[in-house]
Amino acid sequence: MISFPALVGVLFLCFCLLQVVPADPAMIIAGPDAKAETIAAIRLELGLDRPIPVQFFEYILRVAKGDLGRSIISNKSVAEELAHTVGPTVELMIGGLLLAIPIGITLGTLAAVKRGSIVDRLIMAVSVAGVSMPIFFIGLLLIQYVGFKWDLLPFTGRTGPVWDGGLPSLILPCLTLGAVLIGPIARLTRTAVLEVLGADFVRTARAKGLRESTVVMGHALRNALIPVVTLIGLQAAFLLGGAVVTETMFSWPGVGRLAVGAIISSDFPTAQGAIMILALAFLSINLIVDVLYVYLDPRMQRS
């Protein structure tokens, strides 16, 4: 379990973000024409005069209480701004996964079962192309054709939650994010299914006279899913990075877009908070994958 040291690492890096910025945080918060006393007061309030380890400890306590400071630009609480953006980001990620996982697993299984055939080669070619495609290229094409030329779906912003008429605005961002994940998932599923198809229990299942579809779906795929779940965990980095780009392209009001906007406008507290949330999201996805892994593979429970 790497989660704990990684968690401390994430928090420490985010803490450092505010420490090593070229300017004094107190001066940034006080504004360009603040008096020396104001800056000193802010320094005292932020605890900037105390030793670094003490500051780090206090920072962790503050984060635990949900206090992430205030945005320099809007002067709103960063935690509050983040609270509005987490929902849309989670929505986008789940949508992307819901799209990519079934398609990727189906294509990968199909390629493995029809190994060496034209179908297999076609699927693998598409997946290599998918792995090589910059995510913004997919987004640009979707916006240009589906959104603009054919005028089928909205391509800027989010009209609301999925259950409240927001589905159309979610489709193009999800397609963009899902498209980059299909390739890797299909590739790994193919390898995993091929490996399992050669196993003894598959031969036994065939020898019992089970139908080929039962052998593939019930025996091979189920066992092949274990490495696939791990891979989807490894794709979490893709998913997160992809979400940041997708949100920026489609003006999707998520954490990634907030982070990019904050960095461009030098809003350090917001940038720090958003980066921290994204890193924590990444850790949580990995944790969920670990748990799923144990659930899918009972052998793991004993060890």
């Binding site: 790497i2 070229p22 979490a236 982070a259 994204l278 990444f282």
Partner: peptide, 25 residues
């Protein structure tokens, strides 16, 4: 390897965002 694991906890895009936040784009 522990340090490496912590580094793995940061997706590349996040590292890029963090570095850009500190050092400027």
């Amino acid at each position: 390897m522990r340090i490496v694991d912590v580094m793995l906890a940061f997706p590349a895009i996040l590292i890029g965002l963090a570095v850009a936040a500190i050092a400027g784009a």
